[in-house]
Computed example of a mutant assay.
Amino acid sequence: MRAVRAVLGLVVIGAAGMGGLWLTERLLAASEPVPVAQGAAAPLRVETIVPPLVTFADAVTAVGTARARQAVDLLAESGGRVTRIAFEPGDRVEAGAVLLELDDRAEQADLKAADATLAEAQAAFDRQQSLNRSGSASDAAYQTARAALLRAEAERDRAGVVLEDRSLRAPFAGIIGLTDLVEGQVIDTATPIATLDDLSVIAVDFSVPETLLPRLERGQRVDLASAAWPGRTFRGAISRIDSRVDAATRSLALRAEIPNNDRALAGGMFLQVRLVLDERQRPAVPENALTVEGDRTLVMVADGGTARPVEIVTGQQQDGLVEVVSGLAPSARVIVTNLHRLSDGTPIEAVAPERRVEAAAPSGGGG
Results as ranks from 00 to 15, higher is better:
Ser78Met: 09
Thr55Lys: 06
Gly80Cys: 02
Ala147Pro: 03
Glu25Ile: 03
Glu107Thr: 03
Asp115Arg: 13
Ala113Thr: 10
Leu23Arg: 12
Ala140His: 13
Ala228Thr: 01
Val313Lys: 14
Ala253Phe: 09
Asn260Lys: 09
Ser138Thr: 15
Ala42Lys: 07
Asp242Pro: 10
Ala203Asp: 13
Gly268His: 04
Ala247Trp: 05
Gly96Asp: 05
Ile258Lys: 08
Leu181Met: 02
Gln38Cys: 00
Gln122Thr: 12
Ser343Arg: 14
Leu99Ser: 00
Gly304Gln: 09
Gln70Ile: 01
Ala332Val: 12
Val50Glu: 15
Val292Glu: 13
Ala173Ser: 15
Ala284Met: 12
Leu75Lys: 05
Ala203Val: 05
Met300Val: 09
Phe206Asn: 07
Arg355Met: 13
Leu277Tyr: 04
Arg263Ser: 07
Asp165Ile: 01
Ser243Asn: 14
Leu99Gly: 00
Arg296Tyr: 12
Ala203Trp: 09
Thr314Met: 10
Arg26Cys: 03
Val93Gly: 02
Val245Pro: 12
Asp295Ser: 15
Thr297Asp: 13
Leu254Cys: 12
Val72Cys: 03
Gly64Ala: 05
Glu183His: 01
Ser251Gln: 15
Leu328Ala: 14
Ala190Gln: 14
Ser239Tyr: 01
Thr24Phe: 10
Asp262Gln: 15
Ile176Phe: 04
Asn338Thr: 05
Arg274Pro: 01
Ile335Gly: 12
Thr65Ala: 10
Pro347His: 08
Arg81Lys: 09
Arg221Thr: 05
Val34Phe: 04
Ala123Ser: 13
Ala253Ser: 14
Leu27Trp: 10
Arg356Val: 14
Ala119Met: 07
Ala194Trp: 00
Leu224Asp: 01
Leu196His: 04
Glu257Lys: 07
Asp278Pro: 02
Trp22Met: 10
Leu271Glu: 05
Phe125Tyr: 14
Val82Gly: 00
Gly64Met: 06
Met269Val: 04
Ser167Phe: 01
Glu358His: 12
Val7Gly: 06
Pro286Asp: 14
Val204Leu: 04
Pro347Glu: 08
Pro171His: 03
Leu23Lys: 11
Gly367Val: 10
Leu224Pro: 01
